Deep mutational scan, measured.
Amino acid sequence: TIDEIIKALEQAVKDNKPIQVGNYTVTSADEAEKLAKKLKKEY
């Protein structure tokens, strides 16, 4: 679900690790936030 994706992003940001979500690779908190907002609009 979208919530699980967002939790995974938040965890990756805390661990400061890049995370791959679908076609996106998120490497920073800023990118994670942008991706989360984008995904919320889509779903």
Rank of each mutant, 00 (worst) to 15 (best):
I2Q: 01
K38S: 06
Q20T: 14
Q20S: 12
E33G: 07
E4M: 12
V26C: 15
G22C: 15
K41P: 02
S28G: 13
V13M: 14
K38G: 03
D15V: 05
Q20A: 08
Q11T: 06
E10I: 12
L35S: 00
I5A: 02
K37M: 14
E33W: 13
Q11V: 05
K17T: 10
L9Q: 01
I6W: 04
I6H: 01
G22R: 03
Y43W: 12
A29H: 04
V21Q: 01
L39T: 00
K40V: 08
I19E: 01
L35K: 00
Q11I: 05
E42L: 15
L39Y: 07
D30S: 10
K40Y: 10
N23K: 11
V21A: 03
D15I: 05
A32K: 03
A8R: 10
V26D: 01
I19L: 09
G22H: 07
E31S: 02
Y24A: 04
D3R: 11
V26R: 00
G22P: 02
K7W: 14
E4R: 07
T1D: 09
E42M: 15
E31A: 04
L39N: 01
I6S: 01
P18C: 14
E33T: 08
D30N: 07
V26Y: 05
E4H: 06
I5T: 01
A12C: 12
K40P: 02
K37C: 15
D15R: 04
I2N: 03
E42G: 08
L9G: 02
I6P: 01
K38M: 13
E42D: 09
L39Q: 00
V21R: 00
G22I: 04
Q11D: 06
I5G: 00
I2D: 02
E31H: 03
E10C: 14
K38F: 14
E33A: 14
Q11S: 07
D3Q: 13
N16I: 03
D3G: 09
L39F: 06
K7I: 07
A8Q: 10
Y24P: 00
N23V: 10
V21T: 03
K41I: 12
L35Y: 04
S28T: 13
A32G: 03
I6E: 00
E33Q: 12
P18M: 07
L39P: 01
T25S: 10
S28N: 14
E33R: 14
G22Q: 04
N23Q: 13
T1E: 10
A32M: 05
D15S: 09
Y24H: 06
E10Q: 10
K17R: 12
E31L: 03
E42S: 09
E10L: 14
N16H: 07
N16M: 07
K14G: 04
E4K: 07
K14Y: 10
N16S: 05
D3F: 15
K14C: 11
K38Y: 15
D15W: 11
G22W: 13
A8H: 02
V21E: 02
N16R: 08
I5Y: 04
S28Q: 02
P18S: 10
Y43C: 13
K38L: 14
A12D: 00
D3N: 09
D15T: 09
T27Y: 15
T25Y: 15
I5M: 08
Q11M: 10
A12K: 02
Q20F: 07
I5S: 00
E4N: 08
Y24Q: 04
D3T: 09
A29Y: 04
A8L: 13
L39E: 00
E42V: 12
K34Y: 12
L35R: 00
K14W: 12
V13T: 05
A29N: 03
A8S: 07
E31W: 03
K41E: 12
A12V: 11
K38A: 10
Q11P: 01
E33C: 14
G22M: 07
N16D: 06
L39G: 00
P18N: 03
V26Q: 02
K34F: 13
D30R: 08
K7E: 07
A8D: 03
A8K: 08
A8T: 06
K40L: 13
K41L: 14
A29C: 09
A8V: 08
Q20Y: 05
Y43N: 10
T25Q: 11
L9C: 01
G22N: 06
A36R: 10
A12P: 01
S28A: 03
K17L: 13
T27K: 09
A12I: 09
L9A: 01
L35C: 14
D3L: 15
E31I: 04
D15N: 09
N23F: 06
T27V: 11
D15E: 11
D30G: 08
T1M: 10
L9D: 02
K17V: 12
K7Y: 11
Y24W: 11
D30F: 13
K41V: 09
D3S: 11
N23A: 11
Y24S: 02
K38Q: 11
T1P: 07
Y43F: 11
K14T: 07
S28K: 00
Y43D: 03
A36T: 05
D15M: 11
A36K: 04
V26W: 07
D30E: 15
A32E: 02
I6V: 05
V13P: 02
L9R: 00
N16W: 13
Y24T: 04
T1I: 08
I19P: 02
K37Q: 14
S28P: 01
A36Y: 15
S28V: 03
E42C: 15
D30A: 14
I6N: 01
K34S: 11
V21M: 05
P18R: 05
E4Q: 11
T27N: 14
K40W: 13
T25H: 12
E4Y: 11
Q11L: 09
K41C: 13
K34I: 11
A29K: 07
K37D: 11
K34C: 15
K17W: 15
S28Y: 04
Y24E: 03
Q11H: 04
K37I: 13
Y24M: 08
K40C: 14
E31R: 00
I2L: 11
D3C: 15
L35N: 00
D30M: 11
Y43P: 04
G22F: 12
K40G: 05
Q11E: 07
K7M: 11
T25P: 03
N16T: 04
E31Y: 03
I19C: 11
I19V: 13
K41S: 13
L9P: 00
K7L: 10
K7P: 01
P18F: 08
I6R: 01
I5Q: 02
K17P: 02
A12T: 04
E4V: 06
A12F: 15
G22E: 05
Y43M: 12
G22Y: 10
I6G: 00
T27S: 14
K14A: 09
D15P: 01
K41A: 14
T27G: 10
T27A: 12
K41H: 12
V21G: 03
L9K: 00
K37Y: 08
V13Y: 09
V13H: 05
V26I: 13
P18Q: 05
A36I: 15
N23T: 09
S28L: 02
Q11N: 07
K34N: 08
A32C: 03
K34G: 06
L39A: 00
N16E: 05
P18Y: 05
V26S: 03
K14E: 05
K41T: 12
V13S: 08
G22K: 03
K38D: 05
E4G: 05
E10H: 06
L39M: 04
K37N: 13
L35P: 00
K7D: 04
P18L: 06
T1S: 11
G22D: 05
E4F: 11
A32L: 08
A12H: 04
A32H: 00
E33F: 13
E10N: 07
E33L: 15
E4C: 15
Q11W: 06
E33S: 10
K17H: 08
Y24G: 01
I6M: 07
N23L: 08
T27I: 10
E31D: 08
K37H: 11
T1N: 09
P18H: 05
I2S: 03
E42R: 14
L35I: 05
D3P: 09
L9Y: 01
E33I: 14
D3V: 12
A36M: 15
A8I: 12
K14L: 12
E31C: 10
V13Q: 06
L39H: 00
A29V: 08
N23E: 14
T1L: 10
D30I: 12
N23Y: 05
T1W: 15
L39D: 00
I5R: 02
S28E: 03
A32T: 00
Q20H: 10
T25R: 09
A12Y: 14
K7F: 11
L9M: 04
K17C: 06
Y24D: 02
K40M: 13
D30Q: 12
D3H: 11
K14D: 04
L9I: 07
I2E: 01
A36Q: 05
K7T: 06
I5D: 00
E31G: 02
A29S: 10
D3A: 13
D15K: 04
Y43K: 09
I19G: 04
A36G: 02
K37R: 14
K38T: 07
E42Q: 14
K14S: 07
E10K: 07
T1G: 08
A29G: 09
I2K: 02
Q20V: 13
T27C: 15
A8F: 06
Y43Q: 11
T25D: 06
E10A: 08
E10G: 04
